[in-house]
């Protein structure tokens, strides 16, 4: 208890010192490149009052969910296909392994050429970011089922479909759900990257616009929003994860 209170105190002190130093430095320097925290807060209040803050958050979230939904469906299905093993699926796994190290932002130039500026381009970048972890975790988790469970299924004479439904699938669930959560996190960072160059709305677009007119307080408001939304999405995903695989210790 004392430990936790002590830790909370240290966290509050650290944040206080950093924000205080930032405020002091910003006031002393008085340059547009470094807005004071107080200026950031009043900008946030103004943007929220005006409504653009919420419409930007909404636009980014809508893109994330569209691209993520497509990545989830395709990642789960192709991941399950990849888990079947064999030469044909080895090709699929090799293909994903080749594409995987290319970061989503590297796809932006092609994406803009293919889909133009706007939503479809951002959906595609989100899709690219979220797909790999979902595919890889699904494939891997389905393949590495504990042999003890498979032996049990075999000993009671369970056929392949019953074994898949009652053993392989639930055994893989924690890994698959972890892949979905990682995918969602990458989807969020990807949508911001996509909006920085290829969109006319959203948080990524907004911080870029604030930069153009040297409204750095607006840039920081956007950055804080991006961080808070990412945090909230991960917390929601974690809650869902605990409910979906509530039998894990």
């Amino acid at each position: 208890m004392t430990d936790r209170r002590g830790q909370a105190l240290v966290v509050a002190l650290t944040l206080g010192v950093v924000v205080g130093a930032w405020e002091g430095l910003a006031r002393a320097l008085d340059v547009p490149a470094l807005p004071a925290p107080s200026a950031v807060v009043s900008m946030a209040v103004w943007l929220a009052g005006e409504g653009t803050l919420f419409s930007d958050v909404g636009a980014s979230l809508a893109r994330v969910f569209t691209g993520f939904a497509a990545a989830a469906v395709l990642g789960l299905v192709l991941g399950a296909v990849g888990a079947l093993g064999g030469p044909w699926t080895a090709g699929l796994r090799a293909l994903v392994a080749t594409i995987r190290p290319v970061p989503p932002i590297a796809w932006i130039p092609l994406s803009i050429l293919w889909f133009g500026l706007g939503d479809p381009s951002a959906w595609f970048i989100v899709f690219v970011g979220a797909f790999s972890p979902i595919f890889v975790q699904t494939c891997w988790s389905l393949q590495r089922c504990d042999p003890r469970w498979l032996e049990l299924a075999q000993s009671v004479g369970a056929g392949p479909w019953l074994t898949f439904r009652r053993v392989r699938l639930p055994a893989a669930a924690p890994g698959v759900v972890a892949g979905l959560r990682t995918g969602l996190g990458l989807a969020w960072t990807s949508v911001i990257a996509a909006e920085l160059v290829g969109a006319q709305s959203g948080l990524g677009y907004r911080i870029q616009m604030h930069r153009v007119v040297v409204e750095t307080d607006g840039v920081i408001v956007g950055m804080v929003c991006i961080g808070l939304c990412g945090l909230a999405m991960d917390a929601a995903a974690r809650r869902l994860e605990r409910r979906l695989v509530d039998w894990t210790p």
Binding site: R148, S155, G157, A158, R166, P170, A173, V245, W247, T248
Partner: peptide, 26 residues
């Protein structure tokens, strides 16, 4: 039928679910 050295109950199913799984397989 086999009883293993470890209980080998599927942790994601209830006790009833474990019985159902074996009986469905049978």
């Amino acid at each position: 039928a086999m009883v293993f050295q470890d209980p080998r109950l599927l942790p994601w199913l209830t006790v009833r679910g474990n019985f159902d799984f074996a009986l469905e397989a049978a």
